[in-house]
C-alpha cells in the first residue's frame, strides 16, 4: 500500500489535474495536483496512492519498476 510505483505519462489534462500513466503495461488515471513542475507526455512520475508525488528520471523509473515486477511476481 505504501508503495511508490513509477509511471510513464501517456496523456494528461492539466485543467482537470490528471494524467494517464503506464506501469507494467497497465494504464491508470492518476492525480497530478501535487506536482509544481511542468509535466509532458513521456515524463516519469513517482506515484503513491493514485497521486504523483514527484518527477523522476527514466533510469530511476526503470530500475524501480523492475524491482516491483519481481517483488509483485514473487507474491
Amino acid at each position: 500500500m505504501c508503495l511508490g510505483i513509477p509511471g510513464k505519462v501517456v496523456s494528461l489534462n492539466q485543467a482537470e489535474q490528471w494524467a494517464v500513466v503506464e506501469s507494467f503495461g497497465v494504464r491508470k488515471k492518476i492525480g497530478i495536483d501535487l506536482i509544481d513542475e511542468e509535466i509532458a507526455p513521456g515524463d516519469y512520475l513517482m506515484v503513491h496512492a493514485g497521486y504523483a508525488i514527484g518527477k523522476i528520471d527514466q533510469m530511476d523509473a526503470q530500475v524501480t519498476l523492475e524491482m516491483w515486477e519481481e517483488i509483485l511476481d514473487a507474491e
Binding site: 500500500m1 505504501c2 511508490g4 491508470k28 492518476i30 492525480g31 503513491h48 496512492a49 493514485g50 497521486y51
Partner: peptide, 28 residues
C-alpha cells in the same frame, strides 16, 4: 487503487455511505 476512485464510487452510489480507511504515512 486510489481514494479518488472511491469518491467517484460515492458519487455514483448516493444511497451508500462510503468510508475510506485512511491508513498511511505522509506519502498517503
Amino acid at each position: 487503487y486510489s481514494p479518488m476512485e472511491a469518491v467517484e464510487f460515492a458519487a455514483r452510489h448516493p444511497q451508500k455511505e462510503v468510508v475510506f480507511l485512511g491508513v498511511g504515512f505522509e506519502t498517503t
